[in-house]
Structures are given as C-alpha cells and as structure tokens.
Design a protein around this nucleic acid. Structure first.
Lengths: 203, 203
DNA sequence: GCAAATTAATGATTTATTCAAG
DNA sequence: CTTGAATAAATCATTAATTTGC
C-alpha cells in the first residue's frame, strides 16, 4: 500500500496488471497520445497521471533490457572463460605462459590489461605462433575487399564490453612454406577504430 | 538458433552484442582491415565470415537511420494533429502560455484534421475531456519530454466501438474557481494502441 | 509475533547518445 | 559544427519485502 502523503505514485495491482498486459502485447514506447489514453483508462483504478505512465514504460522497458543483457553477459563470460581455456590449451609452445596472465578472465584484476597496454606501447612485442590456415575460409570477393589482411584476434577486455578491446594482428610474414604465422599483440581501442573509421571516411 | 545447413549467417547473441557495442562506440563503416579484425574476433563466438560483418554494419546503419526517420515522421504527424488546437482557441489559454509549442503555428495542414473536423460537424460525439488544471502539474522534465505537446493530444484514428476495452477520462468535476474545460475521449482499443506502436516502432 | 535493520524493487531524475537539419 | 528532439542508460530516492534478534 501507499502512504497517504506519498511523494510518488503507487500503482494499484490493477494498474500494474493492465500496464504489463499492454507491454506484453506490444506497447513499448507509447507516444503522448497513447500515454494520455492509457492514463485516462487507468485513472479508473486509482490516482495516476501521464508522467507516471510515461515513466513506467521507460523503466519497464529499460529493466527488461537490463535483465536480458545481464543474462547474455553471464553467458558471454562463461563462454569466454571456456574459449580462453580451450584456446590456450591448444597453444603449442611455452611463450604463452606470460600471455595467459593478461588474457585471464574476470578473476584477474584489470591491472594486467593495463600492463599489457603499457608494454605494447613501449614497443614490447608479445608474439607467438599460430596456424591461421584455418581462418583462410574468407571467400574470394571478400579477399578483394579486404586487401588480403588476415588477422587473429584475442579479446583481452574485461567482461564489460565498454572496456578497451585488444586486437592481435599478423605481422604479415606472408608467403612461405611454413604454415605458421606470427601474430603480434597490440592494443586497439574502440576510439582507435572510430578514429580510423572517420579518417578513412572523411579524411 | 540456426538451421544446420542454413545458407545464411545466424549471429549468436554474443556476436550481436559485440557488434552493437562496436557500432555504439563509433564503428559505423569499418574498412577492410577493421572488418577482418572484427571477423576474427567474433569467430570465437561462432561461425562468421567477413562479408557477414560487412553486411551487418551496412544493414545496421541503414536501419538505424530508417528508425530515426520514422520517428521524425511520427513526430511531424503528431505536430500536425495539433492543428486541432485551432478548434479550441476559446479554451482558457493563459495557463498554457508557457508551453512553448502550444502557440507555435503547426507546420502544415493535413488530412486528419479535416477528417476529424468533418466528423465532429456531423455530430459524431468525439468529445473529449481534459482537466486543464490537472495537467498543469506537469513539471519541467515532462515538458522536455513531451516537447510541450502533452496537452490537447488527440488521436484521430477511428474508434472501434466493438472493442471491449474503452478508455475513459477522469470526470473531474472539481469545484475550482475556473470552470474546467473538459474534453471527452473516445474509446481506443488495446489493439489500436499496439498497432500504432508497432507502426511507429517497427513498421 | 513484531519491529528495527537490511535488501530488493521500482518510481523519478539526470546525463549521454543518436541522428539529421540548419 | 552546432543544435533540436527523442530516448536509452545511469543514477538517485523512496517504498516493499525480507531478515534478524528479541
């Protein structure tokens, strides 16, 4: 129940039921007209005004999204952990021990990432060998488009997707009988991408 | 889920999340190199190739624009509906003066108003009720949100009298010094709402 | 059982993005 | 490049649920 002199709207169960039913049946972002109609309708069941309806849909939509996102993020984290393990278990040679540190998922603090970034900026090269022939399935038309750059990528970002992404790229030791290619690690942030994109498009 | 022998790419939720995050953080038109990086990155989460990434960004950008265009169109239509205000010049205007958009001349004439006007003249009781003083407690944030057109919003869509769901207005026959100008709402169905919503959001 | 204390939900505000028009 | 308009994300604030100790 709602306190008598409450400072905020306390929807009645009927109002909530109707709002939820409307949401379920497709009303996600009612416009002003719809809000007025809904408000009028719901006022039968208790005190209510337009902004309450407006806020209700905003919040409900946002929190539904949030719920979904959390679920996906959890899945993603799990898959990342599994993939990392799988990935590093499959790696052939020792030089990766120190790298696995940076790639460690959540349990490890951000510090490692920053260290890696700093190290990379200082020119330190964390390189390793990886057979990329498996990734050569890019079709011909795309090869034309992409100019033949073939890359390997490892996500060092924290579970939060807004954190910087680290990409690894080949050092293009192209043509050669040895099927292994050396991959070089360097940090690439979203802003880097954006800048490059803008540069390419506008500059 | 993607059919086993599907002829087209079915992005995993993780892939979609990452793509959307990249888009949101500024990558709108990745170049070949970026596409390759992204493709490699996303290949950790499922089968994917460069052209999928390429097409995804193309489509996403286009559809975002489309969405926005629709939103603007909808807004325009709403503003046009406000031509209805001209029918109510006799309404108590003072309280509304501070609503910036109220007195601004609507951009253009349109069909709906004439239809409604005709309907009204034919005696169809599309009357509506609006408690003026009730609406005055709309605060600044709502003004921003509604752009000032919280008032006098009228949906000109034809009412479906067979609908089980009727919206009613508050019959605020309050004992205020200023006799409230009240406008009656016509019934609106939930399906109408849904349709309009879908039309606005998806159609 | 029953309040005080704590936690979870959720209403209400503020802040950041987004696009395109000017 | 700046601005307008819309709204999604993040945040604040209050109410409801619940836990806890008596």
């Amino acid at each position: 129940m709602c306190p008598a002199g409450s400072s905020r709207w306390c929807p009645t169960p009927e109002q909530v039921m109707i709002l939820e039913e409307m949401y379920r049946s497709g009303v996600k972002t009612p416009n002003a007209t719809q809000i007025q109609q809904i408000t009028s309708h719901l006022s039968f069941y208790g005190k209510i005004e337009g902004k309450n309806v407006f806020y209700w849909f905003q919040n409900h939509k946002a929190r539904e999204r949030q719920k979904l996102r959390r679920k996906l993020t959890k899945q993603l984290q799990l898959q990342q952990q599994q993939l990392f393990h799988h990935f590093f278990d499959s790696l052939p040679s020792p030089p990766f021990q120190h790298l696995s540190y940076y790639n460690s998922p959540p349990p490890f603090p951000q510090v490692g990432v920053h260290d890696a970034a700093a190290a990379a900026k200082q020119g330190m090269n964390y390189t390793w060998k990886l057979d990329v022939s498996e990734r050569m399935d890019v079709d011909k038309s795309m090869m034309k488009i992409y100019g033949g750059d073939l890359l390997m990528m490892v996500d060092l970002s924290s579970p939060s997707l807004s954190s910087p992404c680290f990409f690894t790229t080949t050092t293009t030791t192209t043509t050669g009988p040895p099927p292994l290619k050396t991959l070089e690690l360097f940090p690439v942030t979203a802003s880097n991408l954006k800048e490059e994109c803008n540069k390419n498009n506008n500059g």
